[in-house]
Design a protein around this nucleic acid. Sequence first.
DNA 1: GTCGAGATTATCT
DNA 2: GATAATCTCGACC
Length: 205
Amino acid sequence: MVLDREFFAQPSVEVAPRLLGALLSVDDTVLRITEVEAYLGEVDPGSHAFRGRGNRNAAMYGPPGHLYTYFTYGMHTCANVVCSPEGVASGVLLRAGEVVGAVAQARARRLTSKSDADLARGPALLCVALGITLADGGADLDSGRFRLDLPAAQSPCEMGPRTGVSGPGGSAEYPWRFWIPGDPTVSPYKRHRPSRVEPVETSER
DNA sequence: GTCGAGATTATCT
DNA sequence: GATAATCTCGACC
């Protein structure tokens, strides 16, 4: 099955909602994606590619349908699906999902996780649960250990501001976070970390 | 349930 | 030297 090269060659904002409900297999572990976030690359202040190509984000400039992994906060690995044609930086961050295959293995990797819903609730946890590491960066998502199956129909989806993104423009301006409404595996992080815009102060609840 | 602060290191300026 | 697409834990409601 042609894993729709054309599909992944679109901008990440187009690809992101369609990834909801997709099944990502890594070895024997299968994840149903429930939450993603789109990054547009050089025109997106929140993107790693905003300041141009570097060593870390090289994979994001690579061919679509591949994996882009990066290390952040000194201890966390996160995974993206590369979008847009080769040479254009764009990606979809996998934020959360539900482990539906080889749950025992995923649970073994996630010792701190208490319930199944917690196994992949968050970008870094998702990678741990699936066993994705930096070494998997640049891997084709339709070969080797990886396989990505898109849902036949688009899942219901809700969108909102991205979380955890700092820098200029905040990125509340970019409502490019997509998730499946009501799914228990969607990350509960509604807290905005940095400078939160306080609209007014005249009480008003 | 929500909110707030600290930890910890690869990558880039 | 500063930054970061985060997580965990503790306090409070």
